[in-house]
């Protein structure tokens, strides 16, 4: 009755940006990305991928409240890189990883159906 609609969890409202970027005013090479309508699924893989980047000094995400459908990813990098660069890099790497995973699964699947 008073609860938010279920679609609010994944439909980005009109006039709202999916990702907004906010540079930290006190620390250089630190920034937070607010991603609307996403949850742990994206937040957690991004964070873990960012941890693999040796230029990233800090990477973390939070879901401020279960009924606030957004996550905040905070990145702090060394001077060789920038938060935005690290962010893009992480997404590209994950994308490529999923491509590998997909072809690996498809190859296995083809082998398995031949076995039948």
């Amino acid at each position: 009755m008073n609860a938010p609609d279920r679609y609010e969890r994944f439909v980005v409202p009109e006039g709202t940006k999916k990702v907004s970027y906010e540079r930290d005013t006190k620390i250089i090479n630190a920034a937070s990305f607010t991603i609307e309508r996403e949850d742990h699924t994206v937040g957690n893989i991004l964070r873990m991928q960012l941890h693999r980047d040796e230029n990233v000094l800090f990477a973390g995400y939070k879901l401020p409240h279960p009924l606030q459908y957004k996550i905040i990813v905070r990145i702090h990098t060394a001077s060789q890189s920038s938060p935005m660069q690290a962010y893009n890099q992480a997404i590209n790497d994950l994308d490529k990883e999923l491509d590998t995973l997909k072809s690996a699964f498809e190859a296995e699947l083809a082998m398995h159906s031949r076995d039948y």
């Binding site: 999916k18 907004s20 997404i91």
Partner: peptide
Amino acid sequence: LNAIEVLKQKLDAVRLSEDTVEAD
């Protein structure tokens, strides 16, 4: 397979848009 595909689409959607880069 669909899950991998959906996850790829989700990652694609959270890429920084052009105007964000410009603003920076």
